[in-house]
Amino acid sequence: MKNKKSLLLLLSVVLYSSQILASSSVSLLDGYEVSVEQESLKKGATIYYNLCRMCHSLKYIKYQHLLEIGFNEAEVNALRQEHLMNKAIVSTATPENAMKMFGMVPPDLSIMAKARKHGPEYIYSLMLSYVENSEGIYENKIFNGIKMPDVFSYSIAQGEQEKQKIQKDAADVASFLTWTSDPHASDRKTMGFYVIAYLLVLSGLMYLVMRRVWRRLD
C-alpha cells in the first residue's frame, strides 16, 4: 500500500514537472510559437535593427546584451559603430523629429510584450493586420488609426509564399521582443524546475518526519 502511494507521488511529480516545461511555450497564431532559440532571436533582432529602429527605441537593452542571443563581438561592433558597448539602443529618429512626423513619439519596445495583454501575440498580430483600404492607404484591423506604416508590407503581399515569409519574420520579431521584455525567462524556468523538485523532495522528507513524530501519540 505504502509503496503504491510513493510510486503515485513520484509519477505525479514527473507528470507535473514535464507539464510545466511543456506549457512554457506561448502560441502566436498561424501555428507559430514564441521561440527562445538563438537563431530566431538573432533574426528578430536583425529585423528590428533594420525595420523598426528608425522610430522605436529599445532603451532597456544595451549593445552588450546582444551577445547573449548569438551575436558575436564583431557583429555587435558593426551594429553599434561608435556607440559604447554598454550604451542603450536608441531609435534613429529623435523624439522631436518623431513628434513632427507622427504627432506622437513611437513607444519604446523593450517591455511591449509585457505591457499588453497576451503581448507576444498582440505584437505578432499587429504586424499582420494591415489592409489596404479603397483609397490605397493602409489601415490596421487591430489598432484603428495607427500612425505606424505597414513596415512588413503585408497589406500588399502577393501569394502564399510571400505572406508566409512575412509571418515568419513577424514571429521572429515577436520572439525577440519577448526576450527583450524578459531576458532572464529561460534562467528563471530552469531554476524553477530545480527549486520545485528540491521542495518536493524536502516535503516528502518532512512528511515522513512528521508521521514518525505523530506516531508517538498512539
Partner: peptide
C-alpha cells in the same frame, strides 16, 4: 511540513 507545501505552490507562481 505545511511550510514546505506552501513553498511548492509559492515557487510555482514565482518561477512559472
Amino acid at each position: 511540513f505545511g511550510l514546505c507545501i506552501f513553498l511548492v505552490i509559492y515557487s510555482y507562481f514565482v518561477f512559472f
